[in-house]
Design a protein around this nucleic acid. Sequence first.
DNA 1: ACCGGGATGTTCT
DNA 2: GAACATCCCGGTG
Length: 188
Amino acid sequence: MAQARARRLGRAFYERSSLVVAPELLNKVIVAGRCRGRIVEVEAYKGAEDPASHAYRGRTARNAVMFGPPGHLYVYFTYGMHHCANVVTGAAGVAEAVLLRAVEPLAGLDEMRARRPAARRDRDLANGPGKLCAAFGLDRDDDGVDLVRGPVRIVDDGVAPPNTPASSPRIGITKAVDRPWRWYVGDS
DNA sequence: ACCGGGATGTTCT
DNA sequence: GAACATCCCGGTG
């Protein structure tokens, strides 16, 4: 079926609370080079009010991008092996971000398979925060890239977010585990 | 299918 | 020195 032309999200989209931006990122498309994927799972983190956030105890070298202007990528390295990618939201100086937890591959699957040899099925290429960074080739070099003007981008291709996205507590954290700040596309 | 443990190195206490 | 916004493999049922 015909699809509206993809349009890059503007700065204003990101300059809002992570709790608002997170569910709206569902069904948007992340693009890096030839690779494209539909965002199907996200989590919100809110610096000062959120003990689970990297920014909770203030600015450090690692989390500096979270304190910068919205619409940039915050990429960090963890567990000695994996990278995770976040979309920085909120005004400059407000350390909020949305973790990209899962993406459904749309294009560039050959590149993704080459970078994710452990994935047995295509659906396993990017269904996790570390996996999607590997599949799309995101690493520390992408920390701070501008999603509005830079090489990695997030676009709206005409597929609306779910009207009532499924939500649940966040995953893989040990603090503030009760907050239902994870959203996902139900049938994915 | 589900569960348990090990890998691996940066960051912060 | 501990914790970590994770992933993979090999066990068992």
